[in-house]
């Protein structure tokens, strides 16, 4: 038997991966009807990759769910189909029928767009399929209110989160007991940082949406944000026209709401290099939490993931 002096310590990425695998297996064993929320972004890509490892040689024993707003980048839709197929998993797609009928879009409806397509859409999908546990790729380092969220986060039957009434989470013992109608959001990547995510993608050679890499793309500059003209639905304001710029995205969402950065980074090490040398945090590219510091917490209480 070896003593600890000669033991090989696991690296931080090995430990983070092992923790995420442990969490996913607990859910697979204890939840009745789990699902993995898949947003096609880099965090989802890592989460899906870890899920494949957790259950290998079986495919992950749950489906993928994409809550679609119909306004994602075209390259995201292509990646979505490919990723599900490669993983051997069922892909469920939900689009809020009400939002579709009323033609809710990011140009005319602002915050209502996010609420109806994403928040309401997610609730509808979870209720429709009766999922009692949903994996999400959120990380604690993203935003201050996330830092205090549990890995297993409970939602009432109407999907509300009560930050004052969270279960204590000790060791690696997760209490998955719940009443009928209640559900759990599970965040297996809670303890990962943005750098960990990129480094892991690099090390594990994980396929990600090409939009993360720089390329010449048609863009419009508006209100300090660099938007990409991804399809013919883009609405130019007066005097605007598409300009080709070398850009990439640090986060991905609805294309009219997602800001790009000008960049020449075409490889993962270059992306990581840019990220490390940059001076703005990742979420700044998202229009969603600019309004106020505590906005994320409010959205979560209302049921946003």
């Amino acid at each position: 038997m070896q003593n600890s002096a000669t033991a090989t310590p696991l690296t931080h990425l090995q430990r983070l991966e092992s923790e995420a695998i442990h969490i996913m297996r607990e859910v697979a064993a204890e939840a009745e009807n789990p699902v993995m929320l898949y947003s096609v972004g880099k965090d989802s890509a890592v989460m899906l990759h870890v899920a494949k490892k957790a259950f290998f040689p079986s495919p992950p024993p749950f489906p993928l769910l994409h809550v679609d707003t119909t306004w994602k980048f075209q390259e995201m839709y292509r990646m979505r189909e490919k990723a599900a197929k490669d993983a051997g998993m069922e892909l469920l797609i939900h689009q809020n029928p009400e939002a579709k009928e009323r033609g809710i879009n990011p140009f005319d409806h602002g915050a209502v767009h996010t609420d109806m397509w994403k928040t309401q859409g997610l609730k509808q999908a979870l209720d429709h399929y009766g999922f009692d546990a949903a994996f999400g790729g959120a990380r604690r380092d993203e935003e201050k209110s996330r830092a205090k969220e549990r890995i297993f986060s409970f939602r009432s039957a109407n999907h509300r989160w009560d930050p004052k009434n969270q279960r204590p989470e000790l060791w690696k013992l997760y209490n998955t007991q719940k009443a009928k109608g209640e559900s759990i959001r599970v965040f297996p990547l809670s303890n990962w940082t943005e750098l960990d995510i990129w480094q892991y993608i690099h090390l594990e050679n994980i396929d990600i949406v090409p939009l993360y890499f720089s390329a010449s793309r048609p863009t419009v500059k508006r209100d300090g944000m660099l938007l990409m003209v991804d399809d013919e639905r883009f609405r130019f304001e007066e005097g605007e026209e598409a300009v080709e710029r070398s850009i990439r995205f640090r986060t991905l969402g609805c294309y009219p709401l997602t800001g790009a950065v000008e960049s020449e980074a075409t490889t993962l090490p270059q992306i990581i290099q840019e990220m490390l040398l940059t001076t703005t945090s990742e979420r700044q590219g998202r229009a969603i939490d600019h309004d106020q510091a505590a906005s994320m917490e409010k959205k979560k209480q209302e049921g946003y993931f």
């Binding site: 310590p9 696991l10 690296t11 931080h12 990425l13 430990r15 983070l16 750098l195 480094q199 690099h202 090390l203 090490p269 270059q270 990581i272 290099q273 490390l276 040398l277």
Partner: peptide
């Protein structure tokens, strides 16, 4: 990070926690 990102990544990859 600025001079040799590959060397940085190599070092970062072996960090413990």
């Amino acid at each position: 990070i600025a001079e040799d990102i590959d060397a940085y990544l190599e070092a970062h990859q072996h960090k413990t926690m």
